[in-house]
Amino acid sequence: MARSTPEIPNASMADIAFLLLTFFLMTTTVASDKGLMIQLPPPPEALPPDTDVEIPERNLFKIQVNSFDRLLVEGEPWTASNRELTDKIKGFILNNGQDPTSSDNPQKAIVSFKTDRGTTHKAFIDVLDAIQAAYHEIYAERAGVTVDRWREIASDPNADPQARQQYDKGRGLLPNGGVEIPMALSIAEPTKVGG
């Protein structure tokens, strides 16, 4: 007696599975945890009162952004590109007392960044990016690595001994635990002019 063996056609199974696969591939987004990293100062309440430190004008590099996202760099309106701003900041940090109107040495140099409450986040990030680019380029050059590699090292300095060594070399670690070129970035409380 001839009996037909019951079978489910499975030729299309692969197609169905592929369809599911492509669906998952397209709908899942890879979470990106990339960004500009900064360290905030201690809370305003924790700072000891009446510790107004006089910082000489020459050691301050002032960047201000108003509520129309216009820049004021060292008191002058700034219309040039971000790249030029980075170069100007690098010149300021590495002045070492050559130009009497610029910084004494990298350790004393402070970049002061002030925004308005009405400044957009985009303008803030653009300027912060330019400032960090200046420091990262200086560090990378001193450590003898590319800027991309430097940022990898700085993200995780303790990844391996070589990274740690390059990290310390780039920033110029001093025996007392300080660094030759600290990333001295002061982000001031925004002004309330609005607009």
Partner: peptide
Amino acid sequence: DVESKRGLIADVETELRRANARKLLYSAN
């Protein structure tokens, strides 16, 4: 968001300082 204003973000930053969570990452592409 790029269009957000600094005022609100600065308020958040002040609170983060008070909460002692001082490592910050401004997400960007």
